[in-house]
Design a protein around this nucleic acid. Structure first.
Length: 290
DNA sequence: ACCCAGGCGGGCG
DNA sequence: CGCCCGCATGGG
């Protein structure tokens, strides 16, 4: 096993990574009996085992995508050390040890987080799957047989009609998806801005109709790997207020500043752990102990 | 039946 | 600037 094509158990939990409401949760699939993730990439099915090792898929492009998507070369210990500022974070890391942020393609990320607004995780996944089935290109396995459809690109969706998207369950987000698709297939090349810094990328993203502060941060974090991004949704707002401000209300601006000061370059990782752990514990103790 | 969900844009003071 | 509102739709 040369290099870092394989991760040690305990530092990489593929199930937590898949289930924690990141883009892969919406367009990939997890096989619970075999503990492996399958997802579409460039018209091919890629399968990865519980350690991050490729078990289906060939070529340099696939290798590069897996390494990037699962953050193979990331020093997770340094990140855990960097964000372990208090017991709440330490408990969340203990509970979901090995949960990684994923680094997905910009457009995939944009699509699912436009769908995420005023929506729930289960329905985002349902709608994404319907859009893939209806507008995506075929995906083939290594034996050459079709196994499904990929995530439709901005070109495919820009030609779609509002009522057709709505029949896939997009609801009122259909108009945002179409204008975003048009914008990203003409004015804004999402791949071309990858090298830019976090602030610039966020500003560019917010130029998309239907992409505001929170969605832009999600795309910056999970579509561009900008770990300093700290998306503030309803959960993060109430969790940060409960855990760090004794339940006192704070504006998104104040929370951004707090997160940046406290977790800095790894704020996005802190966000993912607070989000996933806090959601699971909200009813049982957080809301009652404050 | 009712309530909610990883927000957003638009209108208002 | 901050605040308030409507918004499609499936599941609890």
């Amino acid at each position: 096993m040369r290099g870092r094509t394989q991760m040690k158990d305990g530092k990489f939990d593929i199930m937590h990574t898949f289930e924690s409401a990141q883009p892969l949760t919406f367009f990939g699939d997890y096989d619970y009996s075999r503990k492996e993730i399958a997802y579409p990439f460039m018209g091919r099915q890629v399968r990865v085992d519980r350690f991050g090792k490729i078990i289906e898929g060939k070529g340099a492009a696939v290798k590069a995508d897996v390494a990037r998507r699962f953050r193979i070369n990331e020093d997770i210990d340094a990140i855990y050390h960097g964000i372990s500022t208090d017991d709440f974070i330490r408990d969340s890391i203990k509970e979901y040890s090995g949960m990684r942020l994923t680094h997905n393609l910009p457009w995939e990320t944009t699509l699912v987080f436009i769908l995420s607004q005023f929506n729930n995780v289960k329905r985002i996944r349902l709608t994404t799957k319907k859009l893939m089935e209806r507008y995506g290109e075929p995906v083939f396995d290594s034996a050459g047989s079709a196994v499904g459809k990929g995530v439709p690109g901005p070109e495919a969706l820009s030609a779609a009609k509002v009522e057709d998207l709505m029949s896939c369950g997009t609801g009122f987000r259909a108009k945002y998806l179409i204008s975003a698709a048009k914008y990203c297939s003409s004015s804004l090349d999402l791949d071309r801005i990858s090298a830019k810094d976090y602030a610039t990328i966020k500003e560019e993203l917010m130029g998309i109709d239907g992409v505001g502060d929170k969605v832009a941060d999600c795309i910056a974090l999970m579509g561009y790997g900008k770990l300093e991004a700290f998306p503030i949704d309803t959960w993060i707002k109430r969790l940060v207020e409960a855990v760090y401000f004794r339940g006192r209300k704070r504006s998104p601006r104040q929370i951004h500043e707090f997160a940046s000061n406290r977790w800095g370059a790894y704020a996005g990782y802190a966000q993912q752990y607070i989000f996933w752990y806090g959601r699971s514990r909200w009813k049982t103790w957080i809301s009652k102990s404050r």
